[in-house]
Every structure is written in structure tokens, then in C-alpha cells.
Nucleic acid binder design. Structure first.
Lengths: 154, 154
DNA sequence: TCTTGACCTCCAGCATGGTCGAGGTTGAAG
DNA sequence: CTTCAACCTCGACCATGCTGGAGGTCAAGA
């Protein structure tokens, strides 16, 4: 009990999480995970880091940047094990992120579907050209495309 | 008619498409768009490049890489104006890409939703930890996370 | 004690998707 | 013909998200 039996080495964390040790150091550097050091300066991790890593990897699948994830994880307490409601809060905000992305994809797909067979080769009428036409009502002469800007509440 | 009246300068394309001229040269470099040169080595674009740019920008919103887009656009004829059916083919293949992505997001969201209130702090039961459990049936001791790998038919 | 593998730091490099600036040319208006 | 914005190339640089190597240290087994 006095020997911190639950601490994991970086190798163990890498193996159990599937995240390369290089990425683990990288994440630590970016403030996404934390470790304590042994007297010999080696990293030791709490088991809870595995949960954080799962969270990080899943978040990346959703398309969030590491910075997004870091900000999200910053809501979790560093000094105590996160409670269920801590995670609930995060999960809920994630869910809306997902909802927003799904929604955006839907809108894109629907435009595209409408585009098939719409004779869409006219610059003035093709939905693809006027992807943002909900807010924009620019004249038909020179449609401006919005810069891409992936990320955020699109 | 003999002076190619429909050709656009890079500045005009940049303005009309909203794509910076730096990006236009970048896209050309990567083989996504093409130009012809004047006697003085300046780029001149066909109007159809605006359509390609719209396509490119939209594709990026969906999360496709420039390489994906280049491959898709490679299906279009370089030497003639794309016909409706050329675009239809592209649009259709895009649509399934979108469908796949929407589907993936749905599955993620559903897991997450299930996670809220599931008491998900158990490494063994949390859907987040076992995000890939359809194919994986690893023992409960050391769940491996899949590397992220964004892109492809996920 | 020796050996060996796991660990450490730091730094360079890769891929993607660009931007920016230097230094030089073009082309159209006046 | 002059002028000057717009164009050209090339190479450096930025951010993100990592990987890999060099060179050195730590720790546990034989």
C-alpha cells in the first residue's frame, strides 16, 4: 500500500491504451494528460489516465482537435477522481457537438442529393456553389465561397 | 472569340471563388486544378475551375483530404467540359461517403448517449472504452483502443 | 556487478494544408 | 513610354499531430 501499487509505467499505459509512448509524451506536453515522476525521473500514471486516453481518442474520431479535448478535459478535476457527473457534463457537451456535426453533414448531403439531376452545371443555381445560402443572398453574378474552417459549431 | 474571352486571371478566380490566390497555386501544384499560361507566363483559368473549387471546398467540409478530392476530380475529363453525368457520378460517390460518415457519427453519438448515466466509470463496461466492440471481443482486463485513423471508409 | 531493456530529454523530421515575403516580370491604363 | 498593380517563382515558415533517433539514465534479473 505504501508503494503506490496502482501506478502504471509509460510502457504499460501504451500497451493497455494502444496509444504509442511517443504520443503519450506528446499529450502530456500539450496538457492533455498528467503523470508523476519517480525518484529516477520516470513517469508513473494513475489508472484514470486510461479513461482520459479513451476520451481523447474518441474525441479525435469525432473530429475534435487536441486543443478542444484539452479544454474539455480541463473541466475535469485534476486532484480527485472524476465523478459520474463530471463525465456526464463532458458527455453531454460532446453529444451536442456530435449532433451539430451530423446536422451539418445532413445538410451537405441533402444539397448534394438535390444536385444530382438538377442540371447543376449552372454556377447560378447549383446548391454546391451556394452552400451557405441560408444566410447569404449575394447576387447571382459572383458567388463567394466561405473559407473552410473545419471545427467549431459550423 | 479568337482572344479567349472567357479566361479568368488568378485574381479574378480568387475573388469569385473566395479561395486565396496562394491556395489556388497550391491546388494547382497538387493537381487539383489546371490553368493555361499566357505568352507572359501568367495563369489563365477556364470558368469551370470555379466549379471545381466549389467542389474542393465542399469536399473539405465533409472532411475529405485534398488527395481524396484530387482522385475524385481525376475522374472528370481534363480536355472537355464535364457533362452532367460526369458530375452525377462524382456526386453519387460523394453521397455514399457522406452517408458513411453520418452513420459513423451516429454510432458514436448513440454510444455516448448510452454512456450518460450508465455509471460509465468502469473501464470494463463503458462504451467509450469499447468503441470498437463490434469486431473486438478482447477480455475485460486490458481493453485496447484502436488507433484513430481518420479517413477512409471508417 | 553486469547487462539489458525500458526509460529519459531534446531535437529533427514527416504529412497536410496552407501563408508570407523576396525579388523579378507582365500588361494595361494614362 | 512610363508606371504600377497584378502577376510570377521559389523557398521559408506556420499549425497540428505526431514519429524516430541520438545520447544518456534507471532498474531489475542473472
Amino acid at each position: 500500500m505504501s508503494k503506490l501499487p496502482e501506478m502504471l509505467t509509460i510502457g504499460q499505459v501504451a500497451e493497455r491504451s494502444g496509444v504509442p509512448h511517443t504520443a503519450l509524451r506528446f499529450y502530456e506536453d500539450r496538457g492533455l494528460i498528467a503523470s508523476v515522476r519517480t525518484a529516477g525521473n520516470q513517469r508513473r500514471y494513475l489508472r484514470s489516465v486510461l479513461r482520459r486516453l479513451a476520451f481523447i481518442r474518441t474525441a479525435q474520431r469525432v473530429g475534435l482537435t487536441l486543443e478542444d479535448v484539452r479544454d474539455a478535459l480541463a473541466q475535469l478535476p485534476d486532484n480527485r477522481t472524476p465523478t459520474k457527473s463530471d463525465w456526464e457534463r463532458l458527455s453531454r457537451s460532446w453529444k451536442s457537438e456530435l449532433d451539430a456535426r451530423i446536422d451539418a453533414l445532413y445538410r451537405l448531403r441533402d444539397r448534394l442529393t438535390g444536385c444530382i439531376g438538377c442540371g447543376c452545371l449552372s454556377l447560378r443555381s447549383c446548391a454546391l456553389q451556394n452552400i451557405d445560402d441560408e444566410q447569404a443572398s449575394h447576387g447571382p453574378g459572383a458567388p463567394k465561397l466561405k473559407p473552410v474552417g473545419e471545427g467549431g459549431t459550423d
